[in-house]
């Protein structure tokens, strides 16, 4: 492989991974922008979405004859499930603590995350064939490769652009455009921006803040649901611990781009995806250090530019 081909390959994998992280990061950044809460459970909601997707595949009979039907069914069922779950978490855990100190809510979020992780482990023990018959609940589950391997650049091309990477782009990019349109052009989107800017003033203007916050959690959850289907199809492996890892990547992306900023989250996620691809595909022995690089970047950004790449400076009020 020539250098250019390697770079092209890293770009392709990096961007595909980055787009998946971006969907999760959008949920983090929207929730943080509106209630200033690091929703630790967000990654685990996505993990539970993956388990639901695998259950659906299992109910359809494992290796499906009509993969597009299975994918369509997953995209139809998993996002509403994740949205409902995220909404319920907000309604019953975070909303009663809306006026409590920030750290109180953060600790509750860690608690919710623990509960979700444990639920994921139990879910992995379902006596279904796709889960390994329920004998080893905690082990990683392999997700059926519904899309197969098709190199779109030809079977003997060196650079691989498979149908999976195209699927990632085809599903995620329109969603991001839709979200941008929703937030900037619709009445509810305007209400969301108003609540993010100043909740009290928004309430005085007649905006039902609780409804807007709930809606934010629903949208964030739905995006995580789509991300879970896409990630499961792309990586073909899921485990009950994947939520923590994906959540950390997504959160790092959100901070990197400037937390509370939607284009920033996508930009940050693409950076993280590319950085991981470079570490894993180029640097010798880089794969085992990729976490260190990602979190090192996170710490450096927080210390030297806490507002991220695209964020604007907010002064702490007395």
């Amino acid at each position: 492989m020539s250098t250019w081909e390697i770079i092209l390959q890293l770009l392709i994998t990096g961007l595909a991974n980055g787009l998946i992280i971006a969907l999760i990061a959008l949920g983090y950044t929207m929730v943080y922008g509106i209630v200033e809460l690091i929703n630790f459970a967000h990654g685990d909601v996505m993990m539970l979405g993956c388990f639901l997707a695998l259950t659906i595949v299992g109910l359809l009979g494992g290796e499906v004859a009509a993969p597009w039907l299975a994918i369509g069914l997953m995209l139809l069922l998993v996002p509403p499930f994740c949205a409902a779950l995220n909404w319920m978490i907000d309604r019953h855990v975070y909303r009663p603590l809306r006026n409590a100190p920030k750290l109180t809510v953060l600790v509750s979020a860690i608690g919710v995350s623990f509960v979700c992780v444990n639920l994921g482990m139990f879910w992995g023990g379902l006596p279904m064939e796709v889960f390994g018959g329920g004998a080893q609940a905690a082990s990683a589950k392999s997700f059926p490769d519904l899309l197969g391997y098709h190199n779109l650049l030809g079977n003997d091309a060196v650079v691989q652009l498979t149908s999976k990477e195209v699927m990632v782009a085809v599903i995620t990019v329109p969603l991001m455009i839709l979200l941008t349109w929703f937030v900037s052009r619709t009445r509810l989107g305007t209400a969301m921006r108003a609540v993010a800017q100043n909740p009290t003033a928004a309430q005085l203007m007649g905006i039902d803040t609780n409804r807007v916050v709930g809606l934010t959690f629903i949208i964030g959850g739905a995006l995580a649901g789509v991300a879970s289907v896409v990630a499961a199809l792309y990586t073909t492996s899921i485990s009950f611990q994947m939520g923590y890892r994906n959540g950390l990547d997504a959160f790092t992306a959100a901070v990197l781009g400037g937390i509370g900023n939607l284009p920033g989250a996508v930009l940050g996620a693409l950076c993280i995806g590319l950085a991981r691809a470079v570490m894993e595909g180029w640097v010798p022995n880089g794969g085992q250090w990729s976490n260190t690089v990602v979190f090192g970047v996170l710490i450096l950004v927080l210390v030297f530019r806490p507002t991220g790449i695209l964020g604007s400076r907010v002064r702490e009020k007395v």
Binding site: L97, F114, F122, A137
Partner: peptide, 28 residues
């Protein structure tokens, strides 16, 4: 048995999580 629910150790994080949520709500 083989069932994942049957081992008390598997409930650990569920119980920790619920404890954290309830503590924050009732006795922060």
């Amino acid at each position: 048995g083989d069932n994942v629910l049957a081992s008390p150790g598997n409930w650990k994080f569920m119980l920790y999580g619920i404890a954290l949520i309830l503590m924050m709500r009732l006795r922060p």
